[in-house]
Design a protein around this nucleic acid. Structure first.
Length: 328
DNA sequence: CGTCCACGTCTAC
DNA sequence: TAGACCTGGACGG
């Protein structure tokens, strides 16, 4: 599932499936989960969802009780509760019958129906988490998709931050500034502009300060690139959202082909990939850029590509007849 | 059987 | 800047 678009599609899914469904009783947890218990029990409540970057917040809203059942009332919660979810590498929501509950359904909300249906948070690898009475994580920036102006401001006013000394491809994964960007999105975004992944982030982002500067003065600075990197951090994820419900990144899903067809760079045949300084695979085409991990160099001359690289590096050019490759 | 790889954080030396 | 945290699919012997 899970980069910004998948988290948002998950919130859309919850709102669609749970609209008009009354939930009841306690929120239950799998035996194996180490995430916290959710101290919420209610005779009748509704569930809604909203996303921000790489987080989803569920709101449990108790329905007004008529007060006729005092015994049930005593044990139950009558205040709404927010639960904030992070999806790790494999989290998603699904709404099924009790019988169809998938493996690794770690948190479960039961409907009042008979037979009951269940909204469950499924997370195979358990890198995901939830926080009862949670709020948006304070270290994460505005949402790249749905808080675009704030997101842009947060970056341009902090370009002097040492964080932007790093290569652009690594900074794009910094959730303090790019809440919602993940590994496939950074590849797709940089590919659209043909920005080498290992150029300094500050260099790649310079020239964007003026976009919403005053209309009263003469044009101050104009963009140095025709495509705008920050704008693409907004529009490229929205393209995935617009593929529609259930169409995000999930290779295990039947309907994966639309997403696969949308990818232009990530995992695409003919693209290059190298590990970044954090060990994550960066997919790109053309030059890696000057800040590529140590031990790696790459250049082309007279149509001959010469590359010195780590054995774990994969360059598509190695299939080309005129490439000379040296492993050190 | 084994090794490598995967959409992401986290904390600890 | 490593690892730790997890499961499981692909692929090699």
């Amino acid at each position: 599932m899970p980069e910004g678009p998948e988290l948002h599609l998950a919130s859309v899914y919850v709102n669609k499936m749970c609209k008009g469904v009354v939930f009841s009783g306690p929120v239950t947890k799998s035996e194996v989960s180490k995430s916290p218990d959710v101290p919420f029990t209610c005779e009748a409540y509704l569930i809604t969802a909203v996303s921000r970057g790489k987080e989803v917040k569920l709101t449990l809203t108790p329905l007004k009780s008529d007060g006729s059942n005092q015994r049930a009332k005593r044990a139950q919660t009558d205040q709404p509760m927010d639960i904030v979810f992070r999806f790790g590498m494999s989290g998603y929501f699904t709404f099924t019958t009790e019988d169809e509950l998938p493996k690794h359904a770690h948190l479960r909300f039961h409907s009042k129906e008979n037979p009951s249906r269940v909204l469950s948070f499924v997370d195979t690898r358990r890198f995901g988490s939830w926080e009862p009475n949670g709020t948006w994580h304070s270290d994460r920036g505005p949402c790249i998709m749905f808080e675009y102006e704030k997101f842009r401001d947060n970056v341009v006013t902090r370009l002097s931050d040492r964080a932007f000394d790093r290569p652009i491809c690594e900074v794009l994964l910094n959730q303090k500034y790019f809440n919602g960007i993940g590994n496939y999105l950074r590849a797709e975004i940089l590919f659209r502009l043909k920005i080498p992944p290992f150029v300094s982030a500050r260099t790649a982002l310079e020239g964007h300060e003026s976009e919403d500067l005053n209309e009263n003065e003469k044009p101050v600075k104009t963009e140095i690139t025709t495509g705008d990197l920050l704008r693409l951090c907004h529009t490229v994820p929205l393209e995935v959202v617009n593929l529609g419900s259930g169409k995000g990144y999930d290779p295990t899903k039947q309907d994966y082909s639309d997403f696969e067809a949308w990818l232009q760079c990530y995992y695409v045949d003919g693209m290059n990939s190298i590990r970044d300084h954090n060990g994550r695979t960066m997919w790109f085409t053309g030059e890696p850029g000057p800040m590529a991990p140590k031990g790696m160099s790459y250049f082309e001359t007279e149509g001959i590509a010469i590359s010195c690289l780590h054995p774990n590096t994969h360059l598509a050019q190695k299939a080309e007849p005129h490439g000379l490759f040296v492993w050190l």
